[in-house]
Computed example of a mutant assay.
Amino acid sequence: MSESLALKQSMQTAAKEKEAAHPVSKVMRGSYLSVSENLSAGEVLDMVRSSCLKNDQLNLVFVSGRSGRYSGFVRLSTLLRAPESTQMKTLAKGRDLFVTETSDQEAAARLLQKRDIPMLPVVDENQRLQGVLTFDDAMDILEEETSEDIYWKAGVGDPLHMKDTVRSEKLTLGGIGYTLKVRIAFLLVTLAGGLLVGGLIDHSA
């Protein structure tokens, strides 16, 4: 097996392990409005007005078709402009815009960011809506992933116990033992590299 193929397989395995460890189902929320595709815009607006949900939880109204399968969403702004007799299935968009419960959190967050929507639907294996990933939660996920990447590149990633906690808090508020532990691998590699370079210089001299 070539080194490039082995590296590719290793990266694929790591990606699958990460996806399994951080499914979007762990952060999805259950506060959203879902309606039948056969309801009219007027009927759904009445539901919106009487809903106990917060305003930002009503920016999208999710639509379900036969057997409860997810069939898209309607923006509240679209709903307000539509004739009251218009059926929701006519207004629904984004039929294929969703993630499954086992999807990786970061991938889901990046999809939400790319498509510029306030909530991303999360469905089960039967494509029934189970929850939503909110914009705020998606931004938190991306911020945490960015922080982890930065600390790993700086040599302060935790090679022993990969936690979901942002490393900056643990490094600034934690004890000296944690700081030494996360730095030791980086320091050993640096030391080995220095010795190797020094040996090469001495040999060439």
Rank of each mutant, 00 (worst) to 15 (best):
M1T: 11
M1N: 10
E3M: 15
A6H: 13
L7A: 15
K8M: 15
S10N: 11
S10K: 15
S10R: 15
A14P: 01
A15G: 00
E17L: 11
K18I: 04
E19P: 00
A21N: 05
P23D: 04
K26T: 09
V27A: 05
V27H: 03
V27M: 02
M28N: 11
M28G: 10
G30W: 10
S31C: 03
Y32R: 01
L33C: 02
L33F: 07
S34K: 00
V35T: 01
S36V: 01
E37N: 04
N38C: 01
N38Y: 02
S40I: 06
A41K: 02
G42H: 02
E43T: 05
V44Y: 01
V44S: 00
L45W: 01
M47Y: 05
M47I: 01
V48R: 00
R49N: 11
S50D: 03
K54C: 10
N55W: 11
L58D: 04
L58Q: 06
L58H: 05
L58I: 06
N59W: 04
L60H: 14
L60F: 11
R66I: 09
R66T: 08
R66G: 05
G68A: 11
R69Q: 14
F73A: 15
R75D: 01
R75K: 14
L80D: 03
A82E: 04
S85K: 08
S85E: 15
T86L: 12
T86S: 13
K89F: 13
T90S: 14
L91Q: 09
L91P: 06
L91M: 08
L91G: 07
G94W: 06
D96W: 10
V99K: 02
E101H: 14
T102K: 12
T102F: 11
S103V: 01
E106M: 07
E106N: 03
A107K: 07
A107R: 06
R110A: 08
L111T: 07
L112T: 06
Q113R: 12
K114W: 08
K114N: 06
R115D: 02
R115A: 09
L120E: 08
V123P: 00
V123C: 12
E125Q: 13
N126I: 01
N126T: 07
L129Q: 02
L129P: 02
L129S: 07
L133F: 01
L133P: 08
L133S: 06
L133V: 07
T134N: 04
D136F: 10
D137G: 00
A138L: 05
D140K: 14
I141Y: 07
L142K: 09
E143C: 10
T146F: 10
S147Y: 10
S147N: 11
D149F: 08
I150G: 02
A154C: 15
G155R: 14
G155Y: 12
D158R: 09
H161K: 15
H161C: 12
K163I: 10
K163D: 15
K163S: 15
D164L: 10
T165F: 13
V166H: 06
L171N: 06
L171C: 08
L171Q: 06
G174W: 09
G175A: 06
G175I: 07
Y178H: 12
T179G: 07
T179S: 13
T179I: 14
L180K: 12
K181P: 00
I184G: 02
A185N: 11
L187A: 12
V189F: 04
G193F: 03
G193V: 02
L196H: 00
G199D: 05
G199V: 05
